[in-house]
Design a protein around this nucleic acid. Structure first.
Length: 287
DNA sequence: CCAAGGCCTGAATG
DNA sequence: ACATTCAGGCCTT
């Protein structure tokens, strides 16, 4: 562990490629040696050597640079597997995304795959976002809640969302009407925010955890999808008492409690490292 | 509380 | 080619 931390001190650099390419964000492209990404109404630009810049000159800490990584890594490194994953992907980070974009993105993600999610979100942005020019390149910002909220089902489903179109429309209306204020959820506890966000049709346990972890600062969120279940079965056989591949809501809750008990309050970081390691093992192409 | 089945769509598989 | 299966779930019965 000591060795790991001293290694970190020299390598506090963020590993951009692996971070952007870790299933958290979908609207990022590499152009002329830079990464450009849509974050709500903003476009971010970053390269491995330069500071992050933004179309809107916003100050969002997108890469969570203020997180105390040393403390977090110490905290989550409870076992061999996690230590290996952390060591292998030291520069991997959680991102702090625009909440509404994240909210819609993960509703769209359910029962889908990366490529389709990206295609769906790009279509939504072209159709309902604003065209902006940044660095002499064109981008479409992510649609504002009111734009989606006032669309028809047909317009939304023309973006290829299928049966998720209804969920996306209703979800946007819930935000637009103020029935749920995503910023407010940042101030709630994990379980309270989780309960509220799961009241939205189309958001179950897994999608909720993604939104909470990637945009609402709930670092104990630990999205349990098919991959994570497989990972837990493989590296922690018997430890968490997983019985079936698809788990019920109740089983999800029980499992999540055990996870937090094991990994601690920054469990979400552990999830990210483990997930990345296993996906890489399977040599999946993501971008 | 659990199990089973259906769901849009596109890429992968046979 | 063409049919079938499957994918980073969720909802209803």
């Amino acid at each position: 562990m000591k060795q790991l931390l001293s290694e970190m001190a020299g390598h506090t650099q963020i590993d951009l490629d692996n971070t952007i390419n870790s299933g958290q964000v979908f609207l990022w492209k590499r152009l002329d040696g830079f990464w450009y990404g849509i974050n709500g109404q903003d476009v971010l630009k970053v390269s491995q050597s330069d500071r992050i810049t933004s179309y809107q000159n916003s100050r969002t800490d997108f890469f969570r640079k203020k997180d105390n990584l040393e403390e977090i890594i110490c905290s989550i490194s409870k076992d061999k597997t996690t230590r290996l994953a952390v060591k292998k992907y030291l520069g991997l980070r959680l991102l702090r995304q625009d909440p509404f974009q994240c909210f819609i993105s993960f509703i769209v993600s359910s029962n889908s795959n990366i490529q389709k999610i990206r295609s769906n979100l790009e279509h939504l942005s072209v159709k309902f976002g604003k065209k902006v020019s940044f660095d002499k390149k064109e981008f479409y910002t992510f649609p504002e809640p009111r734009k989606i909220a006032s669309a028809s089902i047909g317009e939304i489903s023309s973006c290829g969302l299928g049966y998720r179109s209804r969920f996306v429309l209703d979800a946007a209306r819930i935000i637009q009407s103020g029935q749920i204020d995503l910023e407010d959820l940042k101030k709630c506890s994990y379980s309270e925010a989780n309960r509220i966000i799961q009241s939205v049709p189309g958001i179950g346990s897994k999608v909720a955890d993604c939104i909470l972890l990637f945009s609402l600062d709930k670092l104990e969120a630990f999205p349990l999808d098919r991959w994570m279940i497989r990972i837990l079965e493989k590296y922690y056989p018997g430890k968490f008492g997983i019985k079936t591949k698809s788990i019920t809501q109740k089983q999800y809750e029980v499992l999540h409690e055990k996870i937090v008990k094991h990994f601690g309050p920054y469990a979400g970081y552990a999830q990210q490292f483990l997930f990345k390691m296993e996906r890489e093992n399977y040599q999946k192409k993501w971008l």
